[in-house]
Nucleic acid binder design. Sequence first.
DNA 1: CTGTTAGCGCCTTCAT
DNA 2: ATGAAGGCGCTAACAG
Lengths: 346, 346
Amino acid sequence: MARSRESRRGRPDLGVAAVARLAGVSTATVSNTLNRPEIVAPATRDRVMAAIEELDFVPNRAAGALRTGSNRLIGLVVPDIVNPFYAEITDAVCAASSRAGYAVSLCVSGDDPDRERNHFAALAELRAAGAIVVTLSADHQRLERLRLVGSHLVLVDRRASVSEGCSVAIDDVLGGRLATEHLLRLGGPLAVVNGDLGIPQCAERDEGVREALAAHEVDPESVIMRHVSEMTIDNGQQAIEEILEADRPRAIFCTNDQLAVGVVRGLSAAGLSVPDDVAVVGYGDLPLAWESLVPLTSVKQPKNELGELAVSLLLDELDAETGGTEHTHQARRLSPELVIRESAPS
Amino acid sequence: MARSRESRRGRPDLGVAAVARLAGVSTATVSNTLNRPEIVAPATRDRVMAAIEELDFVPNRAAGALRTGSNRLIGLVVPDIVNPFYAEITDAVCAASSRAGYAVSLCVSGDDPDRERNHFAALAELRAAGAIVVTLSADHQRLERLRLVGSHLVLVDRRASVSEGCSVAIDDVLGGRLATEHLLRLGGPLAVVNGDLGIPQCAERDEGVREALAAHEVDPESVIMRHVSEMTIDNGQQAIEEILEADRPRAIFCTNDQLAVGVVRGLSAAGLSVPDDVAVVGYGDLPLAWESLVPLTSVKQPKNELGELAVSLLLDELDAETGGTEHTHQARRLSPELVIRESAPS
DNA sequence: CTGTTAGCGCCTTCAT
DNA sequence: ATGAAGGCGCTAACAG
């Protein structure tokens, strides 16, 4: 096959041998200057570098990977790249990986097990070093299947049941508590607009609410609890309309920013002022929060750290295998914090 | 190195040879079953498939790539993955690539030439088949440098100066004209809030405005033209405040949705109703547009098609090289369309 | 510190 | 339709 020597657009695909010849050294020395510069004599190293420059040599990683059995490539699976939450995690993962010299293979799964599996098959074929997976709904079994493909994996945004591997998640109980405590200081009746408690995140945020209530000796029965099926702006607006028919809360905690925007909108439509009449706290601190008409006080999830930590846990696991150091799986939790804006000032 | 045979977590890394042995055929037949199933006798094929299944064999793509000189991998460079515009393009690119059996290596460049170059170097080392690049500000020279790395590339969202390669962009002149024509029908004074005309997209949208003006015989001098340095919500709000000091437009075209949201906000603050007193059209059709308090009429850019077309142009170019068919570079332009919502109804 | 050498796993021509 | 064999470019022993 003639083309095999011309993958770089016409120019023949030279190899270490050519560089070695030009520099007057052996191929091993070329390989060493590339992979372990420190063990090569500076003078030789310079000569080799010059030759590389001169020939415009680009090492063929496929060959290296074949030889060493693994690639500096990590897979990233996210359910939805348009969602800013996942987009920010992706951003952080790309940045951290690239800093460590790894490429990132992205798969937008749409939370579809098939696409997830396809991507994993591809990663296995590429002999990727590992993968970072952000799964929305995967059950235990589905996760196990993923682990079986073999590459090391770090789970993001899932409360790891067992420490069968590393994981990074956000402490949503704490988030719920922070939001609730902030609102409780206002003294009036509290309302909570949440999603389906079947969703782990929602359940945890709810738990945080209850913790705060208990700590402040507030009767949970006195709190207006509302659940919507989908956590959208429209449903938020509808929820507040229904609430206002019977009650008049002084403060409302919405377990995501979309709901909060809807609630603020409904409140305004009802002639109520935010935050003067009713204070509102959202969750997620998405762009939506600050772009909102009245900028939202919201629970900020450390998405950057999430991504970075995921990469560093993965790298640690990889280094352990290579360097023989010990690696113990960890289930890390990151603390969110409350960002105070106009919808619920301090 | 003991590990080299254990890249898949403990299980030894079997190869075609093991499969061949189990199936009682030669390695060539295994390879054929994998790559050209149609030329293998169905019976043999089934036996091979069974053996593959049985052994849980995963072909090593690195070896194949080494042999054939290229990988089923395409690189994607975007300036900012959190921006929904680029996120949607990324989404489409991932989907289309994966459908074609290609993996996607993502690089978030931050529009930084260095990161861009790093990623390209990595892609070259991986012998990626090609790359899709969405560049914000790259000058001609920077693009040339990218092409030099050798892999085939498709440019997105840049008006390709010369047809040195394929490109896909949106016809922003048309977008500007559509928006303007829609507003012109209202008859009152028109205002345009745009960004720096040094940005090609802004310049084109401006040109579209002028085209529409000319077509309707409206004196460009009668139009209030305003330019902001950064196209943010805040600047939009400020722009409208300044405009209102001297004028009272009946319709406003903002060249992105952020500006439009700001303008709507400023209008409301001034006690003006949208769209009854003033109609507003945005550009981009981002989530922001429909999440806005008064949902924005906006120019929708076909981001999905952008991404898909980019992939298919790239694949065509690759196939041409492999299959010997002809490929002619094309600079495609996609037409935006106006999405009518409340801020400027029909 | 540097050179020699033997494959990594697969694909592919050539012969059967 | 199938088998045998060589080599893609690089790395990591090991020897010097």
